[in-house]
């Protein structure tokens, strides 16, 4: 079946990126997104930098309210007032998205930067057939096309994400949650984007369906060589799907590393906490308790942002903010323990 699906990887499309030499598709530099409130700015994303390489899945994890979704929305330039990007650069294929106007953004959204939104299955239009929704996306970007050609293209897409062809003329309510989720994945890849941002793509699904959707994502990545940012808080799922993992806490990036390394040897105390608190299905062990009160994001304390909850806090953490540094090859940590 694979042979029939004719898709070019973005590498072939652009002609400049080769798999393996770690060309960055997305380069976020010192991104700051603040929400202004009457009592001061909420620093939802504060000085965050990271890269997404060609053909990899970058996992973005952290607790609710740590700025994962805000980061994703900022990359899509979809932060709504009172929020706004107050600083930094977002380079997609070496073009900065921050200064772009709405018309330029409309061109790159979906065609080079696709989103699988949170609760994606509720984002389908309930009164449009599945095929019409996908066709609309294609024709908005590529202009009107022949019925037969579009049909063939959409059916190819269905094969790619493991959907049966008979859903072509169906409405969203006729499909199960897992199928709707796969329709959203199909829509995200239809225009062959360089980067897909998937915001908790499996959060409302149960484990068996979650696994099917997860494997679909991996399959799509392997066949098309597309890069992805996978936002989530399920560490188990992240371990199964991503290549590199980025951990956020209170608007800051605290650790970025290949997924194998970070699970074997987490360096930042917050990452350690996060990994220890995963409930296990293999062994019954006493629960690990942590008191968790995050500081007010309007006036972060001087020094490290994790100082209030950190079990290994030192004096220097209360005054000096640790920068995100490469401690080991490809393993970045923001913590004074490794100075």
């Amino acid at each position: 079946m694979t042979a029939q699906v004719e898709y070019r990887t973005p590498a072939q499309k652009g002609g400049k990126m080769q798999h393996g030499n770690r060309e960055a598709v997305l380069d976020v530099r010192n991104l700051k997104v603040y929400y202004s409130t009457p009592t001061g700015d909420v620093r939802a994303v504060d000085d965050v930098s990271f890269k997404v390489y060609q053909g990899e899945i970058l996992g973005l994890v952290g607790e609710s309210g740590c700025g994962k979704t805000t980061t994703a929305m900022a990359i899509l330039r979809m932060v709504q007032p009172p929020g706004g990007i107050v600083g930094g650069q977002i380079l997609l294929d070496e073009t900065d998205l921050v200064p772009m106007n709405e018309r330029e953004l409309r061109n790159i959204r979906w065609s080079s930067l696709a989103l699988i939104p949170q609760g994606a299955m509720n984002s389908l239009n309930p009164i449009m057939r599945i095929s019409d929704q996908i066709r609309e996306a294609i024709e908005t970007h590529e202009g009107k096309q022949k019925e037969k050609k579009i049909r063939e293209r959409i059916l190819n897409l269905f094969t790619l994400v493991g959907l049966p062809s008979r859903i072509y003329d169906m409405y969203p309510h006729e499909l199960s949650g897992g199928m709707k989720q796969r329709v959203c994945i199909a829509m995200a890849i239809v225009l062959n984007p360089s980067l897909i941002i998937a915001d908790e793509p499996t959060s409302a699904l149960d484990v068996v369906v979650q696994r099917v959707v997860g494997q679909t994502l991996l399959d799509v990545k392997n066949r098309l060589g597309v890069s992805m940012i996978l936002i989530g808080h399920d560490m188990g799922l992240q371990a199964q799907l991503v290549d590199r993992l980025a951990v956020m806490y209170a608007g800051h990036m605290v650790e970025v590393s290949p997924v194998g390394t970070i699970f074997k040897e987490p360096l930042h105390p917050y990452t350690q906490l996060l990994i220890e608190s995963i409930p296990s299905i293999k062994e019954r062990k006493p629960l690990k308790l942590t008191e968790g009160i995050t500081h007010d994001l309007r006036n972060p304390p001087p020094g490290c942002i994790f100082q209030a909850r950190c079990p290994k806090v030192m004096d220097v953490c209360r005054s000096v903010k640790p920068p995100l540094e490469e401690i080991k090859p490809d393993h970045y940590v923001a913590c004074h323990l490794y100075d």
């Binding site: 369906v209 979650q210 199964q240 990994i275």
Partner: peptide, 22 residues
Amino acid sequence: SIPVPDPQVKWGGEDVLTLDDE
């Protein structure tokens, strides 16, 4: 199907054969 929080251990069992529908 429960994802194991260890990148070395991949999803166990056979590949899922599902009809994830009503």
